[in-house]
Simulated scan of single mutants.
Amino acid sequence: MPVVWNSVSVVVAVRGNAGHLPSLLRALSHQDYLGAVELVVVDNHDQPVIDRCRLVAWPVPVHVAFEMRPGLARARNTGIRMATGDFILITDPEAQPDPGWVRTMVTALVHGGADLVGGQVVPILPAGAGPLPAPVLALFGPACWPTVVCELEAPGQLSGSNLGMPNTDEVPLLVDARRRGSGYHRHYDAIELPASVQPAGYSVQLVPGAVVRRPVLPEHLTVRSVWVRAWRQGVSLARPGVRRSSGAHLPGPRAPRGLPWEWLVSRGGWLAIVTVLARAAGRTKERALRALGWRREERPARARPLHQHTAQH
């Protein structure tokens, strides 16, 4: 009996980073997966900026959707609804998936029995950045990763840059919790997803070997950028269902043994302090607003795709 390979839809949301799509398509065209792979691009600008005709030269089919309402989770949800593959993988335009990424994620979904899987995100530091402490690195990817497939232990391990799920009749959508109409892309929407799906009996697993590498730009390592990222991470970690285990896998600002003063006056040391303070401030403010009843509960919707599939491989 011939082997039937499942089809895969890779969903990316684009806002200000459309120039990275060719490198992502190049990485997808070098995957060792033998099944059909399509790329679903969600143009999340105020006006359409992505020309699909410029992307048709790649062997990976490209579908473009336009979502004018800003928000990373909202744009990704639009792509999830549009996906036609048996499985849906979510990543970013800047991501550089390893050649075995699609195969490893699909294998985990088919044989692991999970409803949602997460792969590892490895940050690529800019030249001259020097060594960065673990709290800063944790803003761009999980601080630690298992060597075998296992159940999710802490929400902080999950990243929206590397998610996978079956395209079934109930696809969990990401929580869209932007404040006061803000147009920024929230980088930690995936942290809140397990809090909504695990109580309903959904299995969430971490997959070793399913690696995407994501460049960290110099502007991402300014004090302001680090503060904003850490603040948003703290807000996400304070949400109901997330905060019970939110401290796990998020390292504190520990100085290297024997070099406390050198570390304290280093750029990496100060960024680590900024990270921990901002994360704590965001978490504290979010908890206070919820305690006062000034924050409504955001619950992810369920999406019924246009095409339903049954996993065969």
Rank of each mutant, 00 (worst) to 15 (best):
M165R: 04
P2F: 09
V37N: 00
P215H: 06
G183S: 13
V60K: 00
A278F: 00
H30S: 15
L125E: 13
L292D: 00
Q312Y: 06
A13H: 06
A83L: 07
G164D: 01
W5F: 14
A57L: 04
A272M: 05
A288P: 02
R267N: 09
E151C: 07
Q157H: 06
W5V: 10
T284E: 04
G252N: 05
L109R: 10
P260S: 09
L174Y: 03
V42R: 02
C53T: 14
P70T: 01
Q312N: 05
G79D: 11
T78L: 12
Q233D: 01
P256W: 11
L217K: 11
R279N: 10
A272I: 09
L292A: 10
E219D: 15
G100A: 12
L89H: 07
L39A: 07
L72A: 11
L132E: 07
P305M: 04
L250M: 15
A75I: 00
P99T: 14
A57D: 11
P126D: 12
V56S: 08
T222L: 12
V212H: 04
A75G: 06
K285Y: 04
V136N: 03
P305D: 02
V175R: 00
S236N: 09
H313P: 10
V235T: 11
A301T: 03
I80F: 15
R290M: 05
L277Y: 02
L109N: 12
V223K: 14
V41G: 01
Y184D: 13
P146N: 04
M82S: 13
G160I: 03
P22A: 03
I273D: 07
T147S: 13
A272W: 05
G234D: 02
R243Q: 08
D115G: 15
R224Q: 15
P22Q: 07
E297L: 11
A301M: 02
V211L: 13
V212E: 02
P172A: 09
L221F: 09
C150Q: 14
G85Y: 02
S159F: 08
T78D: 03
T104F: 13
H309Q: 08
F140D: 01
V3Y: 12
G269F: 03
L152T: 00
P155D: 01
A27D: 04
L34F: 10
N44S: 09
G234R: 04
T104I: 07
R257F: 14
W145C: 07
L116M: 10
G209S: 08
L206C: 03
L292G: 01
N162K: 06
A301F: 03
W294S: 02
G71P: 01
A255E: 13
P300K: 00
V64C: 07
V11I: 13
P172S: 10
R213H: 14
V3G: 04
R103G: 05
G79Q: 06
P253T: 12
V117T: 10
V117D: 02
V136A: 05
H187Y: 13
L221D: 10
I124C: 11
S266I: 08
P215E: 07
P123Q: 10
H30M: 13
H45R: 09
S225A: 15
D86H: 14
G164Q: 04
V122Y: 06
N167C: 15
S266H: 12
L116N: 05
G156F: 00
A200C: 06
